[in-house]
């Protein structure tokens, strides 16, 4: 059996190794360009449905963030991406629901939506990556405002590899969550409107 001081020594070497590896994460700051891709499901032309009761048109997105390229930070690494707004726009326009479809042209739309991008970022909380997307949707119907709502999408998960793909994946997961919330909110909004119309008739 090894003497106690050797065992203690090993423990210190191990502790120092752990510290060294932990602190090796504090590299010099760097900036990484993320490649945000549109999922295949959003690249298809939105399907038209005869059951759909509302034609929805999306206006060009308004960006209220301080910087149009920034995607936040993870530790000392900053993330940026080009063409964020087209990436957002394309996926918004591909949203379909059971009660609405994308309108062929603005003039024939039953519901016009002005989206505003409020937040889009990734950050770390200890070893966890957290991506957040927040959009405000202003709705109008035949030239009259019909309210607004804010939709938040979020994804949090363990950081495994620090890779750009992992960070881009987290942002895309958060955006997918946001799209699901938008679709659900639109469905609810449309159902409520139908109830009001039915009640008034």
């Amino acid at each position: 059996m090894r003497p106690a001081w050797v065992q203690r020594g090993n423990r210190w070497v191990f502790a120092a190794g752990c510290l060294a590896t932990i602190f090796s994460g504090c590299n010099a700051p760097q900036t990484a360009q993320l490649d945000l891709t549109v999922p295949a499901s959003a690249q298809d032309t939105p399907k038209t449905s005869s059951k759909a009761s509302l034609r929805v048109a999306w206006l060009a997105i308004d960006d209220q963030r301080l910087d149009e390229t920034s995607l936040g930070n993870f530790g000392n690494c900053s993330y940026v991406a080009k063409s964020i707004l087209p990436w957002v726009n394309q996926q918004l326009c591909a949203i379909n629901g059971t009660n609405f479809v994308k309108a062929d042209d603005l003039a024939r739309a039953d519901l016009v939506i002005q989206p505003t991008l409020l937040k889009l970022y990734i950050q770390n909380v200890a070893i966890t990556k957290s991506a957040v997307v927040v959009l405000r949707l202003n709705l109008s119907s035949h030239g009259k405002s019909s309210g607004q709502f804010i939709c938040r999408g979020q994804y949090a998960g363990m950081n495994w590899s620090d890779s750009n793909e992992e960070m881009a994946g987290a942002i895309q997961n958060a955006f997918a969550d946001c799209l699901r919330n938008i679709a659900a909110s639109l469905e609810l909004n449309i159902k409520l409107k139908h109830m009001v119309v039915a009640a008034s008739n």
């Binding site: 590896t21 932990i22 090796s24």
Partner: peptide, 11 residues
């Protein structure tokens, strides 16, 4: 996780 056992530069 990478932040716990980071890569390189240990020495």
């Amino acid at each position: 996780p990478a932040q716990v056992y980071g890569r390189g530069r240990s020495v």
